[in-house]
């Protein structure tokens, strides 16, 4: 198919569903407006397609899933090689063995190809890496930054679409140093839209020769997130916990955490015990499962009159 659709959010030319829902793209005005190309004589091609490629989701892909029900976007933050990928892989492999995440059962995924790529431990393709999430990820085995999707069915039959960010650590390192860094567009998007956060601290680096720099990077990231996090659930993951940082090192990070994100919880993970990886992902999903209640409005008492007393008493019932 040589013709490209004129709608920038449509990928019908890549063999996917027309963004406006036409089964035959030639019925769509945006498609007809494109330059005519050679006629495709293959009548045996599929006519009903799906709007997802199986790869990590891009930002326009989200629009296909978010209207169908409640969703949870989890920002997975951490430096390069901190263990973010391991955390995500561990969660998928756990589901692959029939496990649950945060008390919820697997109910589908629109990014199975990306999960399978993770399971085969494909690394980000450096040449293809851009500083933000792509609008749409095409089919293929290359790993690109994006959102990994899981549909989960939890207690009381509740359904949630869970999106986990799968992004290069450099985005967050740059963002921690400079909030408006051009290379950190994806990190800013994550901070603005996520419902919950996982911050991954790399115990191996925190106990290695570069531990001073590692401590500083982790603290900077916590501080940066602390400015914006509000009341959103946050989990600090001590990854690669088979390496033990010195007490002073842990203490310094905890002080920063208590100061900037006081409601944050902590958990330790290690690949020696794969169940710790799924416990971490399960914990943050569970924390974000129920939408937090809005802060109740406090009506100030302006003056004391019998009428106001009457109204107030009944207003509270």
């Amino acid at each position: 198919m040589n013709q490209r659709c004129t709608n920038p959010n449509c990928y019908a030319h890549d063999g996917e569903l027309c963004a406006l829902g036409e089964r035959d793209p030639s019925d769509c005005a945006a498609w007809s407006a494109a330059e005519p190309a050679t006629v495709n004589a293959d009548t045996s091609a599929p006519s009903a397609r799906v709007p997802w490629s199986g790869g990590a989701l891009g930002l326009t892909d989200l629009a296909n899933l978010t209207p169908r029900g409640r969703h949870i976007l989890v920002g997975v933050l951490g430096a390069h090689d901190a263990g973010k990928t391991t955390l995500l892989t561990g969660a998928y492999l756990h589901l692959l063995r029939g496990g649950e995440l945060g008390g919820a059962q697997f109910a589908g995924s629109h990014s199975l190809s990306a999960w399978e790529s993770l399971a085969t431990s494909l690394r980000f393709d450096d040449a293809a890496r851009s500083p933000t999430f792509p609008p749409h990820t095409p089919r293929g085995i290359h790993r690109v930054p994006g959102l990994l999707h899981l549909a989960l069915r939890g207690p009381e039959d509740a359904h949630r679409d869970v999106f986990l960010t799968d992004a290069p650590g450099e985005w967050f390192t740059r963002w921690a140093i400079r909030q408006d860094a051009p290379e950190a567009e994806g990190a800013r998007w994550t901070e603005r839209h996520a419902d919950a956060f996982v911050v991954v601290a790399d115990c191996q680096r925190l106990s290695g020769s570069e531990r001073g720099k590692a401590r500083n990077d982790t603290r900077q990231l916590i501080e940066r997130l602390g400015n914006k996090v509000g009341r959103r659930p946050t989990l600090l993951v001590w990854a690669k916990n088979d390496h033990r940082p010195k007490d002073a090192m842990e203490r310094a990070i905890r002080v920063a955490l208590r100061q900037h994100i006081p409601h944050a919880e902590e958990i330790s993970t290690t690949t020696n015990q794969p169940e710790t990886l799924m416990a971490a992902v399960g914990q943050i999903i569970q924390a974000a499962w129920k939408v937090p209640r809005a802060t109740p409005l406090q009506e100030p008492v302006l003056h004391h009159t019998p009428f106001s007393t009457y109204r107030r008493r009944h207003a509270q019932t």
Partner: peptide
């Protein structure tokens, strides 16, 4: 499973037998 987790951890980046196929 175990091999995949270790490889994803960054210590060893050896090729795994599970290269193709879902």
């Amino acid at each position: 499973l175990e091999g995949l987790l270790k490889s994803a951890d960054g210590d060893s980046r050896r090729e795994l037998p599970r290269k193709s196929g879902w």
